[in-house]
Nucleic acid binder design. Structure first.
Length: 490
RNA sequence: GAUUCCGUAGCUCAGCGGUAGAGCAUCUGACUUUUAAUCAGAGGGUCGUGGGUUCAAAUCCCACCGGGAUCACCA
């Protein structure tokens, strides 16, 4: 019955059989929980040692520790821990006989009186205990928890049972997403859902996953970004929309990349990128305060990061100049730019455009130094095919990317709504694709048609939720904030 | 994809050419106001898999499987 049975599992099954022999049903249907451990800890935090309350509670959770032959049990639920006390003089003997067959890992429900022991531990004095689910597999080592990274990712439930840091990271993830959603709704944005199965993958440059619809007998791509559909909603008159959801990119896996990841994309009609910068700051600073006792300062690794807005705004070209001494704004041709890049030790492709060269130099020389939050603005048009041309420099766009801890947290721009300009940009992408760049965008005629009906001037914004959660939970790997990261099949 | 490190009991880890080890967990017993409970005893292993070198391999070499890290594309 158990695929990989061993002596430890057999011992627990023996306990299960012993309970059944005593008339206990090991997998009953429900239990009325009246209190949670964490709430009781909070409610009675000032209860003096040795005091007994008059409160009878019903708590349920997992047995994490079993001491003095079961007289003391540490019970943990989603909110925290509470001790269970069953003294032989105060507990019915038939109940004690059952409890002798309890194991660490079992899920039990306890009815009893709350007190604080003379040693200071908040405790429920047993009146009744019920087996709610018999565990038949051994838990990992109680002190060190589960360290093995592969096991943590493949059996996340064990990681969550054993490691408080993991529970905390996923609690905070939920709080961050809930905060962002609520903050946007409070500002009048409407949450929408757009397709994850795309006929044409669009909205960014990335390699897609390809799948197939049987009934329609046609290929479909998993979305790499929701952008083009959200803009269609803007065309349709939904002036403030956002979507929080999964994107899929068929690219390398790393400490900062998972093939499926969560992004929040926001579109705001009649706004421009400056409005989006302020919105970005409100949302992220607010999220930090929300999970950080109202404070804006957090530590990530060796860095102290202050999320307090406003964040500086510096153009990508100027940042490159500051770091390298080379002012690419004064270099007109791609060939000269490439030569200059080579001079300062940055390798660029022969076919690279001016904007691609600037971005490459930025990525190699500047990115890692941007620890405190900053808006890197006015990104070259060559690498931003969906952003409005900058009114003061046609080589640039009205755009920004937020960098924190040297990571790009999210891109944003004034959305290109000129259908003629957009068509030209798509054609440039098509040319790049034909020249061998398999990440270049596809031509999306249907999207162009929607722009031709007229899209208002619009600000757009994307936030990489996983990276934001990493930052806010001091998690060095994206796998620490994605419950079930993509792994090779074993 | 390249480079590099790791894989030993259910878990956390030692051992790194000469009989497979510890702690927790498990089992038996003691103990009944403990909290990494304690004390006494016991059981538990195809050292990731397959090949090779050697009198002898967990240990050295090669391949493969799985994982981590770094690098490249990318949020």
């Amino acid at each position: 019955m158990i695929a990989d049975s061993n002596a430890l599992i057999e011992a627990k099954i023996n306990n299960l059989r012993a309970l059944e022999a005593l008339g206990v049903k090991p997998y009953p249907y429900r239990f009325d929980v009246t209190h949670h451990a964490g709430d009781l800890q909070e409610k009675y935090k000032d209860l003096p040692n040795g005091e007994v309350t008059g409160e009878t509670v019903r708590v349920a959770g997992r047995v994490m520790s079993y001491r003095n032959s079961g007289m003391f049990i540490d019970l943990r639920d989603a909110s925290g821990k509470i001790q269970i006390f069953s003294h032989k003089d105060g507990t019915p003997s038939d109940l004690l006989a059952q409890m002798a067959h309890y194991d660490i890992g079992d899920i039990i429900g306890v009815t009893g009186i709350v007190r604080r022991t003379p040693r200071g531990e908040l405790t429920v004095n047993t009146q009744n205990v019920e087996m709610l689910s018999k565990s038949i597999r051994p838990l990992p080592e109680k002190y060190h928890g589960l360290h093995d990274t592969e096991l943590k990712y493949r059996k996340r439930y064990l990681d969550l049972i054993m490691n408080e840091e993991s529970r905390e990271a996923f609690r905070k993830r939920s709080q961050i997403i809930t905060f962002i959603r609520q903050a946007l709704v409070n500002e009048g944005f409407m949450e929408v859902e757009t397709p994850m199965l795309h006929v044409i993958p669009g909205g960014t440059t990335a390699k897609p996953f390809l799948t197939h619809h049987n009934a329609l007998d046609m290929p479909l791509y998993m979305r790499i970004a929701p952008e083009l559909f959200l803009k269609r909603l803007i065309v349709g008159g939904m002036d403030k929309v956002f979507e929080i959801g999964r994107n899929f990119r068929n690219e390398g896996i790393s400490i900062k990349h998972n093939p499926e990841f969560t992004a929040c994309e926001i579109y705001w009609a009649y706004a421009s990128y400056t409005d989006m910068m302020a919105l970005f700051e409100r949302v992220v600073e607010g999220a930090v305060r929300h999970i950080n006792n109202g404070e804006t300062k957090l530590t990530f690794g060796e860095h102290a990061i202050d999320f307090k807005a406003p964040w500086p705004r510096k153009s990508m070209v100027d940042l490159v100049t500051e770091k390298t001494g080379v002012d690419f704004a004064k270099i007109a041709s791609a060939a000269d730019a490439a030569a200059k890049a080579k001079e300062i030790g940055v390798h660029v492709e022969k076919s690279a455009l001016w904007g691609q060269i600037v971005e490459t130099v930025f990525a190699e020389k500047v990115e890692d130094t941007l620890i405190q939050p900053i808006h890197v603005i006015d990104i070259p048009k060559d690498v931003m095919p969906l952003a409005k041309t900058h009114p003061l420099d046609a080589r640039l766009t009205e755009s920004f990317e937020v960098y924190i801890n040297g990571w790009e947290i999210g891109p944003s721009f004034s959305e290109l709504n000129d259908p003629f300009d957009q068509r030209e940009r798509f054609m440039a992408q098509v040319a790049a694709r034909e020249a061998g760049n398999d990440e270049a965008m596809h031509l999306d005629e249907d999207f162009l048609e929607s722009l031709e009906y007229g899209m208002p001037p619009t600000g757009g914004l994307g936030i990489g939720i996983d990276r934001l959660v990493m930052l806010l939970t001091n998690s060095p790997s994206i796998r620490d904030v994605i419950a079930f990261p993509t792994l090779r099949h074993k």
